[in-house]
Design a binder for these strands. Sequence first.
DNA 1: CTGAAAGCGCTTACAG
DNA 2: CTGAAAGCGCTTACAG
Lengths: 343, 343
Amino acid sequence: MATQKEIARRAGVSISAVSAVVNGTTHTRMSEETRARIEGIIADLGYVPNDAARALRRQRAGTIAVVVQKVENPIYREMFHGIYDAAEARGWAVVLGDAMWMRSGSHFLARLLGQGSIDGIIVRSEGLIDDEVMRHLRARPAPVIVVEGRHAQDGRWLAIDDAAAGLVATQHLLDLGHRDIEFVGGASWIPTSERYRGYTEAMADAGLEPRPANRSGFGSSAGAEGFAAILASGRRPTGIVVNNVLSAVGTLNAALDAGVRVPDDLSLIAIHDAEVADDLRPPLATVKMPMAELGARAVEAIAAVLAGAPTRFGLVDSPAPVLIPRASTARPPAVPAPWWTAV
Amino acid sequence: MATQKEIARRAGVSISAVSAVVNGTTHTRMSEETRARIEGIIADLGYVPNDAARALRRQRAGTIAVVVQKVENPIYREMFHGIYDAAEARGWAVVLGDAMWMRSGSHFLARLLGQGSIDGIIVRSEGLIDDEVMRHLRARPAPVIVVEGRHAQDGRWLAIDDAAAGLVATQHLLDLGHRDIEFVGGASWIPTSERYRGYTEAMADAGLEPRPANRSGFGSSAGAEGFAAILASGRRPTGIVVNNVLSAVGTLNAALDAGVRVPDDLSLIAIHDAEVADDLRPPLATVKMPMAELGARAVEAIAAVLAGAPTRFGLVDSPAPVLIPRASTARPPAVPAPWWTAV
DNA sequence: CTGAAAGCGCTTACAG
DNA sequence: CTGAAAGCGCTTACAG
């Protein structure tokens, strides 16, 4: 591949002049004729700068990395979008990786740990990643911003307002007239417990006794287990708040499989909006979270840390979580629902 | 951050010695005492090599990029896995990107186009990416391997056996006794048309007249449109092969919304297995494709091109597409299904 | 206005 | 066995 040296030779100018044309930074007042000649040769040779050399010289790679638990999780869609837009605006490329790849000794991790090729790292949920790995990561000069991980020891975390989301979801069911409402997703994972806290607050405000959370992990099977736990307990709520949209797929299916009619017998609402909510039958009511803003803020935070400037960490509470009503919720049944006795 | 120079100074040795310890390549027979001293200082300072400097010097970055249409599409899950494993085995880190980010002028594209930071690129479906961008990409020294794009002009493509998949899916319905079978997804996109070809072959082998494909794009709405087209045509098949699992979500929902019972009135099967198939009601029968192998082969191809070694491009036909039976298919109804008259 | 030179941090042939 | 030196391709003060 052509280098600036080769172009300079052909154009009969110095490398500095070529670099100036490529970057438009110094030698700005060079003769129009020279500039045109250099540009012509650049085009002819299809010259493209060597990013490794640039990164070494500039001490900045121009790339940030985003690591999430499962890239195929649809709730990241908007966050990626927000990150990409904010990064492009600041001159960064974004690359994605899966947390599963961060096993110690992997080359993927080496690239994150090494200097020179990644300027900053956005990691989803430090709690889901090996502590040892996080410690190594934080020892590097590239700033590490944790999204959805409030306990980041260095204080560099951003999170959505999970408690508010739990409250909005629960309030929606209360507004419809439900009083017997359960929560699926009582994990020790912080965002989930915050959502549960929102649920308990809404219940308490309505003068109702919150129920204990029905444990759930991630994915649809966890949501199904949460529903099974409710069945097993003998309780028959008219509404359920599920801590996340993917689990809700399992909750909904478990309910349907048990012969429960949604929303006639049981209303369902989940936190995080995603396309899948429209693809369910019935379509699932959700609470949409400001994921794009979360992503954009994370990029801003990297820029601020790199610049030594102050920045706001903490809750991204604007826009607020917003209800996306869909057919999975309705007024509670006037008479005890059939599923009280069906199982 | 510490450099080899700093470590050499503290250890009272040359940079060469430090580099030797870091890489274990030269100076292999240095005294045990010296090696231990150097290693101690490396650990104390938390030294990590600078990837940019390495990439510049070695003329190899140690990273390959994978670009797909929508990272959240679950059919990539296994392909990413196959790519990751094969890449790690060869000493490469993998980074992911979305094709949506490849707009001309983006920094993401610049990183792919630039030299020095990416050794090879795996692109899903060149047909879905701007020709101009592909041309630029191919002008770079980093090999570009297209997966699912049979018309790659440079011959560097790999694809799964879409025709075989169409055949397996159709044969499954034929084996159940269906004779009136439609195909949803008659796009000009090559993999889809190959799947349709498999459908026509299976039908012809069974002595049946294949139906024209019902146009469909991507995503669930496309599958719903395909179903609507069948309804509008007045035809009432007992079985439908949907060209991909995401479209099938829409096809299934459209059928259910129209009051059609699946599989009692209508059997449904889709190409590409994914978790979502289990999350549908009824769970969706699919044909599982060798996506992990496809990914691994793409990595091998990059390695081969880089090494100037010959490699096999073309169809990844082993393992063959395999039927994953689920509850969405059954024997055709004995009497004309209600939905013949329902709509 | 333009060029020569230093140096980013590393690897590797080469000299001793 | 170990070190000095060159050079990967670039950017940027600095000299002229």
